[in-house]
Structure formats: structure tokens, C-alpha cells
């Protein structure tokens, strides 16, 4: 792993990977949306509104995936003092926040026709809302210090403390009797969902993941370049004035 610790190597690798992840995510999301909106069948109970699933479920998965990614990056940063891991966690946070927000909003829009309410206080919804606040807390904490490395370290500890929420979200639908339905794709005995609906769902999920990787690399590259600019400016300030 230390092979990738080098920011230079990361810049080279990410430059090569950027167009690929961008292309793959655009193609997959376009194909997934086409299959989801035009090809896949309507649900015999839910009618057309089942199509909300293809946006809602992958973004909910991504909200957990991003946080898990941040927790791993934070642990790596705390243990091995890996500078890129800090940047990775910091760059993943806004993306995860957006996915969580998307999952909450689409879930709310889907809940109105299905459950008759925009919002219910059941375990799944509440725990995802807590996740959203954890993301906000992380971003607030990382920017609250004058010394950026202190912000990184404090925020890393916060991510690890908040990670306890991730298994709670995953299993909330099994531990409590909730209005939200239990998992139907990732479960023992294979997915309980017809292939014609599973295909667009998985396409969207993989598309979202590559989108995450794409934006993550863009953000990390921006952070590295911003750091370089800052260092160059400091050098300029400190340089003896010629004259």
C-alpha cells in the first residue's frame, strides 16, 4: 500500500484513470436509467412509482459505502499517518453527504404515494438522518481548526466513533419492526427481485460507484494541487526581496 503513498504516483495513476471512470459512470448511469425508466416492468402494487427505487436504493447504498470508505481512510490516516488517506476521507465526505441527502429526498418522495407520509420516524429513516448529521459534523470539524492537520486528526477520530451507526443502519430493518422494507437484494438465499428489475438496479449501483471514484479523484487532485499552490505562495513570501 505504501507504493500509493506517494502523491506523485497518485497524480500519475489518477490522471490515467480519470477518463475511464468518467466514461464508465456516464455510460452505466445512462444505460441504467434507460432500462429503469423505459424497459423495466411496473410493479403490480406500486405501479410506476417503483421506478423511484433505481435512484433511491443505490444512493442509500452509496451513503453507507462512502462512510465506510471514510472510516477506513481515517483509520489508515491515524495509524500510518498517510497524507493521502486524510485527503481521501476529506474528499469523500461531501460526496457521501450528497448521496445521503439524495437517499433521504427520494425516499421521502417515494414514501408519500406508498406510505401516505413524507416522513415516518422509524429506525431506518432515523438512523440515515443521523448519518447525514454525522457527515455534516465531520465537515464542520475538519474546517474548525486553524491548523489543517489538527482538523484532519480530530475528524478522523470522529469518523471512527460515528462508524457504529453503519451496522445499525444496515440491520435496523431486521432488528426493529419498521415500515421500511427489509433488504431484498443482498440477503441469504439470493436476491428476491426479478432480473428485469435487478439489472438496472445493479447498473445504477455500479454507475454510482464509478461516479464516486471519479469525483473522489478529481477532488483529491484538486486538494493536492491546492496544497502545492499554497506551498509555492509561502516560498514566494519567504524568498528574499531582490532589489
Amino acid at each position: 500500500m505504501h507504493r500509493f503513498a506517494n502523491p506523485k504516483r497518485f497524480m500519475d495513476l489518477s490522471r490515467a484513470l480519470l477518463p475511464w471512470t468518467a466514461g464508465i459512470s456516464v455510460v452505466l448511469i445512462a444505460a441504467g436509467l434507460y432500462l429503469a425508466l423505459f424497459v423495466s416492468p411496473t410493479d403490480y402494487q406500486q405501479g410506476q412509482s417503483v421506478r423511484m427505487m433505481y435512484v433511491h436504493v443505490p444512493s442509500a447504498w452509496m451513503s453507507l459505502f462512502c462512510y465506510t470508505f471514510m472510516a477506513v481512510a481515517a483509520a489508515v490516516a491515524l495509524i500510518w499517518k498517510h497524507p493521502l488517506a486524510d485527503l481521501a476521507a476529506k474528499s469523500a465526505a461531501p460526496i457521501g453527504t450528497c448521496f445521503t441527502f439524495l437517499a433521504l429526498v427520494t425516499g421521502s418522495l417515494w414514501g408519500k404515494p406508498m406510505w401516505g407520509a413524507w416522513w415516518v420516524w422509524d429506525a431506518r429513516l432515523t438512523s440515515v438522518l443521523i448519518l447525514f448529521f454525522l457527515y455534516l459534523g465531520y465537515m464542520a470539524l475538519i474546517n474548525a481548526f486553524d491548523d489543517p492537520t489538527r482538523g484532519f486528526r480530530a475528524a478522523s477520530i470522529l469518523v471512527l466513533v460515528g462508524f457504529i451507526n453503519v451496522p445499525i443502519i444496515k440491520f435496523s430493518v431486521e432488528w426493529w419492526h419498521t415500515l421500511h422494507q427489509p433488504a431484498s437484494v443482498i440477503k441469504m438465499g439470493g436476491p428476491a427481485i426479478h432480473p428485469s428489475m435487478l439489472a438496472p438496479l445493479l447498473l445504477m449501483a455500479v454507475g454510482y460507484t464509478t461516479y464516486f471514484l471519479w469525483v473522489l479523484m478529481v477532488r483529491m487532485r484538486t486538494e493536492i494541487l491546492a496544497g502545492k499552490i499554497r506551498a509555492a505562495r509561502l516560498r514566494q513570501v519567504r524568498a528574499p526581496v531582490k532589489g
Partner: peptide, 24 residues
């Protein structure tokens, strides 16, 4: 206590503390 430890030396600690601690 975890929240109180995390905000040591930060700007605007009090408001930040509520954002960190209340969800937990």
C-alpha cells in the same frame, strides 16, 4: 467527553460540539 476532546483548540467550539454530540 469525546466531543469535548475533539473540539479542544477549535474555533467556535460550542456550536460545533452540539453538531458532533447530539446525533450520538
Amino acid at each position: 467527553a469525546v466531543g469535548a476532546g475533539l473540539i479542544l483548540g477549535s474555533r467556535r467550539g460550542g456550536v460545533l460540539l452540539s453538531l458532533l454530540v447530539l446525533p450520538l
